[in-house]
Design a protein around this nucleic acid. Structure first.
Lengths: 331, 331
DNA sequence: CAGCACCATGTTGACGTGAACATCGGCTCG
DNA sequence: CGAGCCGATGTTCACGTCAACATGGTGCTG
């Protein structure tokens, strides 16, 4: 900075003012400084700036894996939204649920240059991790369980599962089976609970849920089982990938979708409309989740005095060709 | 830091030594300092540290979109590998190819606290962007075009396309059609070129490639066209998503895969093995790409004196059920 | 026992920036 | 025409850390 100042024949402070776009600088001087910055290839040192200001203009995102569609889309939305506010996003991966890993993330976290963090995290792991979150660091949780301890942005999983189930019931199906996600997933548990509740509200006793692990493979496995049962006519899978595996199993078993069995997924993958048949599913609004998460987090960062709140982002049923009215039942 | 020093009755320097794990500290003193750090909730200030050391332990990743499978997997690998070396990863999204966006990325980049950047970027855009890359910042390119200007980690697109094409020819198909990616994509162009070259090497004059935009939708569109042609028996799609859309179109047209038409994709999506039918495709080793990119970048960061080089990561044909021998041709 | 090496710890200063305050000159207004 | 004000610019200092050097004490060697 001093080099630029000398080159332009001004003081360092004036350079600082130009580089921060402050008002009280003579246009001629400003131009001279800008030219000098160009000439000398000056880049402000963000470490010094952060040190001086106590702010980093960076937020951290803690997540287990990038390999799921939902996490990726959420991250994408967060990054986009953060960039709009001129914040950078730093990724803090946590590989596994071991205590080692969590404290590893902690040591990185505690040293990281962050103004706040967004956590996309299965609930049960948060219990271990929360002890180690640096105090005073603003936090927003996405799709996770918590008391009033944090601000949470939450997709309306329950309503999505209800819509899926009622869609199938509305088509005349007498029972809806469910391929759930892993029991360790908060989202999966809520989808399963809502499915169960919705059936009961319609006077139907739900069968046992089959638990998968979100993978197509697990959907396929359960599909091999369900597909052999003549009484199964409607299946709600807790995500699109399991629905895909499920449909593959049904194809192999010669069961027609939707002729024999209707299938609903959850997520609305980019590809879902090109599955065979195109998949009826529940669309999540990841962009909105990311948007709200950043909005709330930055509010906390700037004002220090934000109440914790819970934001619910709605889901929407997308009807395609994998669902059809139930065949008339034998009287 | 001074608070901790006072609390432990030592000097700031000793606290610094403890916090950096330096050797020459009496175990008793070290313990006292650690206790004080705990008691006071001390966290080292990374801005000050970065200012002092001139290093941030952070690398940037510039990319257009997180919404493609390949980018996501590559990013995942980069983050994992960086974490292993105790580096953080900051995302620098560039939305569109407009000059506005590129200079926006530049202003963020030039102010960002980075030791180096990895660019996952279509080639033609790099031309505009390269002018604005801060000089002296170590750079590694992934899957992009360049002279010797940068170090590049590159998936062996050409060999993958060759394997796909030869696999189909080996099954007895007389011609292989190709649904290519957008012409603006370097990877797409190389796959298309290699497909063309491979056919010529086998004495076959390639038909015109059909250009999609990587989306299932574009695969579907071209599938509607190709599927109507009786002479088409083998199609190589430049990614799995287009292959998926293609197969949906073929199903709709009543063409059997692989009975009537064999299909090969590229990428090996997590879901590809559950497509209907399970997709024969080319697997890319994203983990290796991420690993090599980080390795090379950190080498540059640490030694300043690294030659630019080009690393080629191999691809592999995964044979599933979407390809079958050609029917015996009429004599 | 003198001399010296070595270890634990303390002191000083500089990294680059921007807020707060200081200064200086010109312009307005009574 | 002088007082006061305002805008442009300069000066000083502190942010938290760590490298380099300084200090003082302990123990070993010849």
């Amino acid at each position: 900075m001093m080099d630029v100042a000398q080159h332009a024949g001004v003081s360092g402070q004036t350079v600082s003012r130009v580089s921060n776009g402050h008002s009280n600088v003579d246009p001629a001087t400003r131009q001279r400084v800008i030219d000098s910055m160009r000439a000398l290839g000056y880049r402000p040192n963000s470490a010094a700036r952060a040190l001086r200001l106590g702010r980093f203009r960076t937020i951290g995102v803690i997540m287990f894996t990038l390999r799921t569609f939902g996490n990726m889309r959420t991250l994408d939305a967060i990054v986009t939204e953060a960039a709009r506010a001129d914040y950078s996003v730093t990724l803090l991966p946590v590989r596994a649920a071991t205590m080692d890993q969590v404290s590893g993330a902690y040591s990185r976290l505690s040293e990281a240059a962050l103004d706040g963090v967004i956590i996309i995290f299965e609930a049960d792991l948060l219990d271990e991790a929360k002890f180690t979150l640096p105090p005073g660091l603003p936090v927003v949780l996405i799709d996770s369980d918590t008391g009033d301890e944090y601000t949470v942005v939450d997709t309306d999983q329950a309503d999505g599962a209800r819509q899926a189930t009622e869609h199938l019931l509305g088509l005349g199906h007498r029972q809806v089976w469910h391929i759930a996600g892993p029991e360790s997933s908060f989202a999966a548990v809520r989808r399963a609970e809502s499915w169960r509740r919705t059936l009961r509200e319609h006077g139907i006793e739900p069968p046992a849920a089959l638990h998968g692990d979100w993978s197509t493979e697990s959907g396929y496995r359960h599909g091999r089982t369900l597909g052999r049962r003549e009484d199964v006519t409607a299946i709600f899978a807790a995500n699109d990938q399991m629905a895909l595996g499920l449909m593959r199993a049904l194809h192999e078993l010669g069961r027609d979708v939707p002729g024999d069995i209707s299938v609903v997924g959850f997520d609305d993958l980019e590809e879902a409309h090109s599955f065979w048949p195109p998949l009826t599913t529940i669309r999540q609004d990841f962009d909105e989740v990311g948007h709200q998460a950043i909005r709330k987090l930055l509010a906390k960062v700037h004002s220090e005095q934000e109440e914790n709140e819970k934001i619910i982002v709605p889901t929407r049923l997308i009807i395609r060709e994998s669902t059809a009215p139930a065949k008339a039942a034998a009287p």
